[in-house]
Design a protein around this nucleic acid. Structure first.
Length: 446
DNA sequence: TCTGGGGTCCTAGGACCC
DNA sequence: TCTGGGGTCCTAGGACCC
């Protein structure tokens, strides 16, 4: 918490719908819902006119259709247009201060202390009023709600207090008076589960929360969350505004219009998702060591399977290679509703770059290296030159069929097939173990 | 015609190491 | 031969955010 209100939070009002209404005058004053329009779509943004009928973000679009009157526009969304408009807004914020932290396409924090502003309430109010006018002019009528406070959480709460097109400055010294009457849900990090847990012990407002001991709070909602809420209830928040946060993962997923069982179709979807992820990694000049497959089954049960490799990947085919293996170990009976592929453990150097030539036992798709086999007779004077690639199929006379999980200079780790679809045991063998041989691919292959 | 898509952070158990 | 303790990495799941 700072001595003066020097953190600004801007939240654009019903942003996607506002851009649509700006670009199509016939939509102005009418309910507009932007989001998935298919049978399984959900609402991304409802205009204030649509909210009057009960439409909300994250609601199934089908439900919004029931609630909203004829004449409501249901739109799929034009993300390039939203991105362009967002860029205009972020540029305006950077005129205020070099320290701007975009939270999402429609939300950002600004550190005003880094921008040399008059931090009196009157000065801040004038500055923010001017910002809102320039915002509306620059975007063609999109509005935003501004909160200014002594911390990120107070700024954010301020922007929520007066919506849409609002402006709230929370003066230093008034934080607790603003905070305590609010429902606990107003605090960042309190979602439905935490709110319910708190409600069971009659804690409904931030003021109620303030009366709980740190021990009681952490035993109720966990160490980190408890400690965080304990501080937030006291307006104790010194999180800095951070520009240029590095991404920690990149992922793509797709919910199918109808559940998919066909293995060839699933394999093709894995390839397509891997391509999207790989392309984005390559464009951003990053690569990652951990590949995660996400699966949502017909009954909405969701699981993830991941593998961390010895080296970072950004190549779509290699990502897909790993994802295919992970999918092969998942029970797909009944069909899949969603597939997702992600890469995490990102590092700023893409594989195959100039610096990787020496170290990297390059991870290659099996298909590209059909002839490579270990050479059991190799006298091997120095460090072994292994010929195993993550994802490669192998067979062992005693342990059966498996696939290479990871490989080092002298060792190879193999995951053997378990009974049914469960992953089997993992064994680490010498890379030159003559009993280990390349095997045939399992039956996921289209 | 129930329940998107893109993320972040935390927890907990097991492996492994010293 | 009744069994520590800490640290890190990996995996899986879950809460939460927009």
């Amino acid at each position: 918490m700072r001595r003066e209100p020097s953190i600004l939070h801007l939240d654009l009002d019903a942003f996607f719908a506002a851009v649509e209404q700006r670009d199509k005058p016939s939509l102005r004053g009418r309910p507009v819902v932007v989001g998935g329009t298919g049978g399984r779509g959900v609402v991304a943004t409802a205009s204030y006119e649509a909210r009057a009928f009960g439409a909300r973000s994250a609601m199934p679009t089908a439900e919004a259709r029931r609630l909203c009157p004829p004449g409501t526009a249901f739109l799929g969304g034009r993300f390039a247009a939203y991105r362009r408009t967002s860029d205009v807004v972020m540029a305006l914020l950077r005129d205020l201060s070099p320290l701007v932290e975009p939270v999402s396409i429609d939300e950002a924090y600004v550190d005003l202390a880094a921008g040399g502003h008059d931090l009196s309430v009157a000065g801040l109010t004038a500055m923010a009023t001017d910002l809102k006018a320039r915002l509306a002019a620059a975007t063609g009528g999109v509005t935003g709600s501004v909160g200014i406070g002594t911390s990120k959480s107070l700024a954010k709460i301020g922007s929520e207090l007066d919506k849409p097109n609002g402006l709230t400055v929370v003066p230093a010294g008034t934080e607790l008076a603003v905070l305590h009457p609010l429902p606990v849900r107003a605090l960042g990090g309190v979602g439905p589960v935490t709110a319910e847990r708190l409600a069971q012990i009659k804690v409904k407002t931030v003021g109620d929360l303030h009366r709980l001991s740190l021990v009681d709070l952490t035993s109720l909602v966990g160490q980190a969350n408890g400690a965080g809420l304990y501080r937030l209830a006291r307006a104790d928040d010194d999180r800095p505004v951070v520009a240029d946060r590095e991404a920690k993962s990149v992922s793509a997923e797709e919910t199918f219009a109808r559940d998919v069982t066909d293995p060839a179709r699933l394999a093709a979807e894995v390839d397509a998702l891997s391509a999207r992820v790989g392309t984005r990694l390559q464009r951003s000049g990053t690569s990652g060591r951990t590949v995660t497959l996400k699966v949502r089954r017909y009954d909405f049960s969701t699981l993830t399977r991941s593998q961390t490799l010895a080296h970072a990947l950004d190549d779509p085919r290699q990502i897909a290679e790993v994802a295919h293996r992970l999918l092969a170990a998942v029970d797909r009976t009944g069909g899949l509703r969603l597939l997702g592929v992600g890469v995490s453990g990102l590092s700023p150097y893409a594989q195959g770059d100039l610096f990787a030539t020496e170290a990297a036992p390059v991870v290659e798709p099996v298909a590209d290296e059909p002839d490579v086999e270990p050479v059991p007779d190799d006298p091997r004077p120095g460090p072994a030159v292994h010929a195993w690639y993550p994802g490669q199929d192998v067979v062992h006379p005693e342990l059966g069929a498996g696939w290479v999980w990871g490989s080092g200079l002298n060792r190879v780790t193999v995951r053997f097939e378990g009974p049914l679809t469960r992953p089997g045991p993992v064994r680490t063998l010498a890379a030159d173990d003559p009993a280990l041989q390349p095997g045939d691919p399992p039956d996921w292959t289209p």
